[in-house]
Design a protein around this nucleic acid. Sequence first.
RNA 1: GGGCGAUUAGCUCAGCUGGUUUAGAGCGUCUGUCUUACAAACAGAGGGUCUGCGGUUCGAAUCCGUAAUCGCCCACCA
Length: 899
Amino acid sequence: MLDLAPKYNPSEVEDKWYSYWMEHKLFHSEPDGREPYCIVIPPPNVTGVLHMGHMLNNTIQDILVRRARMQGKNALWVPGTDHASISTETKVIAKLASEGIKKTDLTREEFLKHAWEWTEKHGGIILQQLRKLGASCDWERTAFTMDPSRSEAVTKVFCDLYDKGLIYRGLRMVNWDPQNRTALSDDEVFFEEEQSKLYYLKYYLAQEPDTLDAPVGSVVHTDAEGRHYAVVATTRPETIMGDTAMCINPKDPKNAWLKGRRVIVPLVGREIPVIEDRYVEIDFGTGCLKVTPAHDKNDYELGKTHNLDTIDMLNEDGTIAEAAGLYVGMDRFDCRKAISEDLAKAGLLEKVEDYVNNVGLSERTKVPIEPRLSLQWFVKMEHFAKISLAPVMDDIIRFVPEKYKNTYRVWLENIKDWCISRQLWWGHRIPAYFYDNGTDEEAFVVAPTPEEALEKAREATGNPDMKMEDLTQDPGALDTWFSSWLWPITLFDGINNPGNPEIDYYYPTATLVTGPDIIFFWVARMIMAGYEYVGKQPFDNVYFTGIVRDKIGRKMSKSLGNSPDPLDLIERFGADGVRMGLMLAAPAGHDIMYDDALVEQGRNFCNKIWNAFRLVKGWEVADTPAPEASRLAVEWFEARLSDTLAEMEDLMGKYRISEALMALYRLFWDEFSSWYLEVVKPAFGSPMDRATYDATLSFFDTLLKMLHPFMPFITEELWQHLYERREGESIMYARLPEPGSFDPAVLSRFEHLKEVVAGIRTIRKQRQIPNKDTLELNVKGAHDATLDAVISKMGNIDVIRAVEEKSPTAAAFIAGAVEYSIPLEGNIDVEAEIAKLEADLKRYTGFLAGVEKKLSNERFVANAPEAVVALERKKQSDAKEKIAAIESALKALKSPSSK
RNA sequence: GGGCGAUUAGCUCAGCUGGUUUAGAGCGUCUGUCUUACAAACAGAGGGUCUGCGGUUCGAAUCCGUAAUCGCCCACCA
């Protein structure tokens, strides 16, 4: 016996093989004459650590890449990381804060120094972790979204889009994150339900009329002194300092008495007009709306329509600004509390109700966002929407699962301009230069370098003496996604150096594997950039993974502590086991409920493969003729292998990876180990004939190749034991065989055989007959003797005899329409046998009745396709035969002679 | 408020354009077995009428309608 441990020990082989692959540069790819197959990694955050989502996502990518490689394609998987502007900057600020340093105390350069240090310290950990998983990335190509080549491209694209009129700068209502003090795009805001309050505030009339001429239906509020007021319901009383109007619906009878009047903002004392707009819902609250154009999107629109003043009363950190006049410097939420108390004291608060509303939160910091009017940079999206819709709808880019096409379409059809500027330092700096000391917001030029900017500024101003010091670069950085959307292009230098051999060869990439949560952020935008800058789709297929949840369906999160550490799992179950376990449970687009039981199954499978190999390699070989049973098993398994190869090809083409893996799992475990190996296994101590041995090794070889994309380490290890091979060779580059043709009858015959053997085993078990004891098998009916040699071996049968009638003392079972029986010493339990047969009889009679009902229906026979009718007739005759066999068995049992 | 998707064995899922057996798999369960590759295993068994209702059809898990439940996306009415 070969010296292999009885259990597979992953830790002994994983690092060894990963080093081997690296040492021989087996992951590296260069353009050549072969068909390319390229995947670009969705770059994880540079300072991130590996979590279960990455495990799933990267396992899928590795499977696809390894499979392509084994199909003879030039496979390339490009790794890299994302600078993750907001996320990283937030982390750096937190780290500095812990050292007592405030961002505002630092210059831009100082801050960036800290950020780079942080990036270098934590950066790339995640890529190291991916190696543990077995990821076959071409590490020589590791990229970073903020390295010089990528940065140059980003700047270039910004300038180009600006020149094309697709980027503009404008004053807009944007989502403002007061913690990070930056603008966010709409996609970076998520909404959460919050228990809040609805405050009803009193707005007194500015001028008390002598007589109030209120129309019918008016709801007029009058206080104890007879003064009139309107009531406004708001969730944000702290914004009243920014009120510049009150708005009613022109068709609202309740508030018609307010038309044309002016009211006084409570506490503030400012007079504001009552305006009318159909935007106001008559039935919400009191039908009166306070209008704060500087701090609400809809109010801003109202302000524009009605020419209202705008009072910006919040600072960028969310505290109350000078312009408010009151509560200056107080935090917005403290102010809400204070103001509601003050309003109550002043008798200006009518009532407070509990209210559930949706609050927009910053995706990164989770703080409530503040709609804020500010000057930002935007990408016009109409053009991009136009060029990117059709390719997905027409399946030039195939989405798996397909349902996301819809999501994509709806988003593009309602697209809004993309706010790309962030008031952050960590990121690509906006290449815009102001030349008027910041006094004129319009006085800027956009250029890739300061030198070119100066040139342009001189031209624009007609002042040839302008100096570099007169230019001020926009302090802002670009949205991270403004670099990510170029990823598949910039990895091959397709912006700086268009038409170069690499971009021509690898682009469009084959498949993008990512989560549906970034379909808008990233997938859609890559498609846009792809068409704009290369004129082609960035990828042919997009595979959307699900979310990894815990076994009761909760998202994995740090706070719940329900997220296992991937490296710990790899330690405990082996990388192959973890990969296998995850993949078994992960159909495309389905969330996966993670449970250790899954990876245990994966580990067990590794062990099964390992032990099957130990068995095979432990055999002695002799030049003897092959036994009949072995010959038949080889013929059968060859067919079975081809069958599964074809099935897997089909499933993988549809990205049904978990099903493909399951097919393979069953092939290896049930068919190969439980049947094939058991049939060909020589008696203890006996050698095996060479023909069967060679066939078995060749089967094993094919199985390892089929398994390799899913389980790279164990397959490489065993493949090495299987053959002598030269240093540098690897199963990674072995060719996956094409499915051969086979006779389906070979498979169906073997399936029947399994039924017969199972029948024999059941009888053995029921009667507690040891496997060692040989038995005689009697056959009544049209038995196909082709596989008798196998039946004999697997059932430990010494004689197979055709009989006219079953012996009265034989235990019987029916397989197909053949009655098999095993003569036994002593009496059989006639009652039990009869009961079992009668249950069968009932079942088949019922089945036959169903079939015959169909066949006797003239309309069925007339309307159904011929093949279907023929099939029903076949079912009918099969059932009849079976029933006849059962009845004859019953009759024999019931006849007095058997008692 | 709008849209999309789901509901099949204890659990996780297949079942593609309606007809291949009155529905399949893996895991789990139950019963035997330490049978020299593997107890992380072997052998055997049980388990669902396809969420409810209605319809179309010769025929429905599969198509249509409807109700319920769940999930996701978009919008965000103060």
